[in-house]
């Protein structure tokens, strides 16, 4: 465990807690894409298949349980909770996320490190996570006033993977044979998708103006 990866995991945890805080306390999911939340639940479900078979560390297991629990409870809140549902902008959250799932599954069946069920599912989760934010970014472009918690949620979610890239660079130089193109390229694509959001988010923060993304 290096500082970049720990910082990345903590940033990811913060993004999830910010979102849970928003939904659980003010019972609002304004500006949040249910499609992205469902994709993330699928990402964790297919990535952590080994949670009960391979024990790596207490930290690893606890974090997996937190990510699984939070992503599924957020989907539950947005689908079932009457009060939260009222603030869900379903007219604008219309990204066809099936168009993301199928290509990622096909790609995982074509490009993977081992052709086993667990490995293909894990690879699928890596590809899917790279594009899972798209419905959320599209919704933000359609959302007039993005509230702070939503902006912070997306910012931390994007920041965590960029910290992971530093972790991969660090591990490449410090651990022999640590080469994983699939994770690296997917992580890079994922981070690049946030590039324009980061630009608008940081400039809105610097000029102290409301965050708005150009349509």
């Amino acid at each position: 465990m290096n500082a970049f990866r720990l910082a990345g995991d903590m940033t990811h945890l913060i993004s999830v807690l910010v979102l849970l805080l928003k939904i659980h306390t003010i019972k609002s999911c304004a500006g949040i894409s249910l499609k992205t939340q469902e994709l993330y639940a699928l990402v964790f479900a297919t990535r952590y298949l080994d949670i009960f078979t391979d024990f790596i560390s207490l930290y690893n297991t606890v974090m997996k349980l937190i990510f699984l629990g939070s992503s599924f409870s957020i989907v539950w809140y947005m689908r079932r909770h009457k009060l939260v549902q009222r603030s869900y902008d379903k007219d604008h959250d219309t990204f066809r996320h099936q168009l993301l799932v199928l290509p990622c599954l096909i790609l995982a069946l074509l490009i993977h490190e081992q052709f086993t069920f667990k490995e293909v599912m894990w690879t699928f989760s890596i590809y899917l996570e790279a594009v899972a934010i798209l419905p959320q970014l599209v919704l933000l472009q359609r959302t007039r006033n993005i509230d702070n918690l939503t902006g912070q949620y997306v910012f931390f979610l994007g920041a965590y993977r960029s910290l992971y890239i530093l972790n991969w660079i660090y591990r490449y130089f410090t651990e022999p044979h640590y080469v994983h193109w699939i994770t690296w390229i997917s992580g890079l694509v994922q981070t690049l998708l946030y590039a324009d959001f980061f630009y608008y988010y940081i400039s809105s923060w610097k000029n102290n103006v409301k965050l708005t993304l150009p349509a």
Binding site: H12, D50, I56, K64
Partner: peptide, 10 residues
């Protein structure tokens, strides 16, 4: 063999 090392990441 045991799980490859990189699976220790989240």
């Amino acid at each position: 063999e045991s799980e490859p090392s990189y699976k220790d990441e989240l």
